[in-house]
Amino acid sequence: MNYKIMIVEDDKSIAKLLSEYIERYGYETIVVEDFENVLDIFIENEPNLVLLDVNLPKYDGFFWCTKIRQRSMCPIIFISARDSEMSQVMAIESGADDYITKPFYYEVVLAKIKAQLRRVYGEYAVKPADLERISELEGLILYPERSELHYHSKEISLSKKEVELLDMLIKKYPKVATRDALLEKLWDDQNFVDENTLNVNITRVRKRFSKLGIEDAVETVRGLGYRLNITWRNS
């Protein structure tokens, strides 16, 4: 497997040296340069592991670690000049798997990368069949196998179609889930699906959100499809 390592480090010389060293051992690297859209870059590239600095422009590494962890269980290793115990505690609490202080040895970074990749993807990793699949977004948790949607202390039951619809909307966020893609996902033969069937199911999902105290959660993007509107994160 060709593992992808995403490097989020605003010191260009360190990022370049890390990238060059890691690539010597057969890994692919993604070096982030746009520090305002780290999550978007993560979603687009789907790396197998993230190396993350704490001190970054605009938002710090703890912020981005939390955002990534809401979408993925991908291993995250902090690399930072902050060597205080509090910084390391904050890193772990925000979802990190390991913490390396600067200055560091490249051999140590590589060893920790290999250890995390073995843990998550190697022969000792928990197999997908042993895990309960979960889709999460901004505090919203969907359990497809249970047909349940949770938000804080509330939970509701869903139909099979509602589960499939919500699962796709969550995975597509912040992009639009097109009508065609939703129809293909929910029904094997679109030729026998009435045009209003999807609208009815979207209405049902909106009602489910209302039961959780969330209004206007699914927005219609005219001419394209539907997208989640995560205004509930501020509630």
Rank of each mutant, 00 (worst) to 15 (best):
R179C: 12
F104I: 09
N199E: 14
I113Y: 03
Y105N: 13
F104D: 01
V108K: 04
D188N: 15
K161E: 06
W187Q: 08
K175S: 08
D97C: 03
Y124W: 06
I141E: 12
K154R: 13
Q116A: 10
L158S: 03
S147G: 02
V120E: 07
R206Q: 15
Y151R: 07
E162H: 07
D97K: 07
T101S: 08
S94Q: 08
T203L: 12
L183G: 10
V163Q: 05
D97H: 07
M168E: 02
L183K: 12
V193I: 15
R133N: 07
K175Y: 08
V176T: 15
Y106H: 11
S147H: 11
I202Q: 06
V176Q: 02
L149V: 01
R206F: 10
D167V: 00
K185I: 03
I113K: 04
N191I: 10
E123A: 15
D167Y: 01
P144A: 05
M168K: 13
L169E: 00
K185C: 02
A181V: 08
D97T: 04
T197F: 02
L198G: 11
R118M: 09
E155V: 06
Y173T: 03
A115C: 10
D180S: 12
L131E: 10
A115K: 04
L110C: 02
F192L: 14
T178I: 13
A96N: 11
E145R: 06
E107G: 08
K114F: 02
L140R: 08
D188K: 15
S153R: 11
Y105C: 05
N196D: 10
V109L: 13
E195L: 04
Y173S: 05
E162Y: 04
K112A: 13
A125N: 14
I156A: 10
S153P: 01
L158Y: 03
N199W: 03
V163S: 07
A129C: 00
E184V: 13
V163E: 08
F104G: 03
T197W: 02
V163W: 01
A177M: 09
K185Y: 01
A177K: 01
G139R: 08
L137R: 04
L183P: 00
E184K: 15
S157E: 12
R118V: 05
Y173F: 14
N201V: 01
A129G: 02
I134S: 10
Y143K: 13
K171V: 08
S153H: 10
L117W: 05
L140A: 10
I170Y: 04
V193S: 12
D130R: 13
D189Y: 14
A129H: 12
D188L: 13
S153Y: 13
Y99C: 11
Y124R: 12
H150W: 13
R118K: 15
